[in-house]
Simulated assay, not measured.
Amino acid sequence: MGKNLQTAERVRLRPVDLAREHGLSTQAVRNYEEAGILPAAARTPHGYRAYTPRHAAALRAFLALLPGHGHPTATAILRAVHEGATDEALRLIDESHAQLLEDRRTLGAVESALRDLDPGPAAPPEPGGTFIGPLARKLGIRPATLRKWEDAGLVIPHRDPRTGYRVYDESAVRDARTAHQLRRGGYPLDRIAPLIAHLRTAGGLEPLEAALTDWHDRLSTRGRALLTGAAALETYLREHG
């Protein structure tokens, strides 16, 4: 096996050989080498790069890592491997898995909070928005509570250009109502914040529910991509590390 591997490593591959396998440009292959994604290539007497099956395997490992880890982390993983810092490469992989787990926990918290929301109709919005005092009275809270929620990013009023007073438009009132329901349910502010952020991005509860289904799918896709990348890297380390 060792003799066969040594023989294979003496096989010369051109940049175009690596590029064609993955639909890349030869310049991209050269850029990957300069970034440390590929090990440094030997040069022919005429100055041309002489790649080997090891370089082809490194490129396959990188492209397999890319969907799960993203370009910067996948680059850092391969660079660490080629610098002999395998433990650092494994630490970077662990960080990506930890981030995926954190994303799953955030999704779970958002879904749990969503189940506790009362979907009943809200009062019609005030034309032009409402001020902090009337909104606080409508919710049965103090104006100071709304200011605290604003500091936490849960509610984002705009300011009247003439008076500087806070004005809560329809979306800000919705966010305040959501925060109020969840606070009454015992949720801390740091657990409410992700829901409000996703609710704001989606534009309401119904769009958010559809977005959560998509979020589930994306996390599952990323989880499988991490597994695929890990398998490809293990193959590369075993055969060429």
Rank of each mutant, 00 (worst) to 15 (best):
A80S: 15
L92E: 00
A109W: 09
R105G: 05
A98K: 06
H69L: 15
E95G: 09
R105H: 05
E88Q: 15
A89F: 07
A64N: 03
V110H: 04
D103R: 11
A89G: 07
E83T: 04
L78K: 04
L100P: 01
R91W: 12
L101T: 07
A76K: 02
D103M: 12
L63G: 04
Q99D: 15
V81L: 08
E88C: 12
V81G: 02
E88I: 09
P67N: 10
L66Y: 10
V81D: 01
I93H: 13
A76R: 07
L101A: 14
L92F: 01
V110D: 04
L90A: 13
L100V: 13
H71M: 09
L107H: 08
H97I: 11
E102D: 12
I77N: 05
G70F: 01
H69Y: 14
R79V: 05
A64R: 06
Q99W: 09
H97D: 15
T86W: 01
D94H: 13
H97A: 13
T106P: 13
L63I: 05
L78S: 02
H97S: 12
L92Q: 05
L65Q: 00
E95D: 15
I93G: 09
V110T: 05
L78D: 00
V110A: 04
A98V: 08
G70E: 05
A64H: 02
A74F: 04
V81W: 08
E102T: 12
A89C: 08
H69N: 11
R104V: 00
G68W: 11
T73G: 06
L101E: 11
H69R: 12
G108P: 06
L66Q: 14
L100K: 07
D103P: 00
E102I: 10
D103Q: 14
A64K: 04
A76W: 03
H82R: 09
P67W: 04
Q99R: 12
L65T: 01
L66P: 06
T73Y: 06
E88F: 14
T106Y: 00
D103E: 15
L101V: 10
P67Y: 05
A98W: 07
A64T: 05
G108C: 00
S96C: 07
T73Q: 08
L90S: 11
L63P: 08
Q99H: 10
D94Q: 15
R91H: 14
E102A: 14
L63C: 02
L63D: 02
L100R: 06
I77M: 06
A76Q: 00
P72G: 03
L65Y: 05
T73E: 12
A109M: 15
D87H: 10
T75A: 03
L90C: 12
A74I: 05
A64Y: 07
L100F: 01
G108W: 03
A109S: 13
D87S: 14
E83I: 00
L78E: 03
A89I: 02
D94R: 14
L107E: 08
I93K: 12
E102Y: 10
E95L: 14
E95R: 13
D87C: 11
D94A: 15
L101G: 05
V110G: 00
